[in-house]
Computed example of a mutant assay.
Amino acid sequence: MTSRFALGQRLGLTRAQTDLLLRLRTPERIQDFITSLSINHELNGDSCLSVVGVLEHRHAHCIEGAFVAACALWLQGEPPLLMDFHAEGDDDHVVTLFKRGDCWGAISKSNHVWLRWRDPVYRTLRELAISYIHEYVNESKKTLRAYSRPFDLRRVAPERWVTNPEPCWDVAEELDGIRHYRLISKAQARRLRDRDDFEQHLGRQVEFISPRKRSARAAARS
């Protein structure tokens, strides 16, 4: 435990921040914490918060949550690995990878029912990535096309993603630029079936409503 506190100090975390993350002893606990954070609606423009930024603001979107999850895993003695997804006509998504035995799982921050946690039952990274293909959508279209090799955050200076007071865009761009592997062929992409009306209805449900939408709803009722 002393060495884990020392690692937190080397990463630039305070004792309180280190203690909080050390209490997240399993991927399941880390996921629960990431899920409990409000979604970052980016009301002041696009953001890419560091670990400390997320802990201070108590909100996150996918890559911000992935930074926190990776840092928590690292403090538990596991490698801090990210995976990036490339989509066609849609936003990228980032998850944190972990292994149990020979199988991969993923910790994920999402405001929708889609693109969330994956149990560690996938024998390969491709298996894990393709498990997201049905739910990775933009309205009715399935958009997932490629996944990255694991991105090891131990190779990135902690001041760039753990304690950075500025947006961590350079780390996001580095992740975006590493090797990605195509999941399906162009012919397979053309044959993907659109989501039906019920799926689209469910896809519009969110866990955390934007304050702007909440205010608009309140005004409409008054």
Results as ranks from 00 to 15, higher is better:
V113T: 09
G45M: 05
D102Y: 08
E139F: 14
L175E: 01
A60R: 00
L49S: 03
K141D: 10
T18D: 04
G101W: 07
T26V: 06
F33W: 11
V113I: 11
A6R: 13
G105Y: 03
T163E: 09
G77F: 13
I39G: 05
R4Y: 11
E207T: 10
N44P: 00
L97H: 01
F33N: 09
G53F: 03
W104T: 05
T14H: 06
S215Y: 12
R10D: 15
K141E: 06
T26I: 08
Y122V: 02
A87S: 13
D194F: 11
P79T: 08
P165F: 11
V121T: 13
P79D: 15
I184H: 06
K142Q: 12
G203V: 07
Q205I: 15
E166Q: 12
E64N: 10
P120S: 03
I178K: 10
S50L: 04
L82P: 11
A216M: 15
A216F: 14
S50Q: 00
T26P: 00
G77R: 04
W169H: 14
R100S: 13
V171D: 04
S140L: 04
I133P: 00
H59Y: 09
S50E: 00
R126P: 00
M1P: 12
C62Q: 09
V137R: 15
R15H: 09
E174N: 10
S140R: 12
L202S: 05
L49T: 01
D32Q: 14
R155N: 03
L128R: 00
L7T: 13
C103A: 07
R100G: 04
V51R: 03
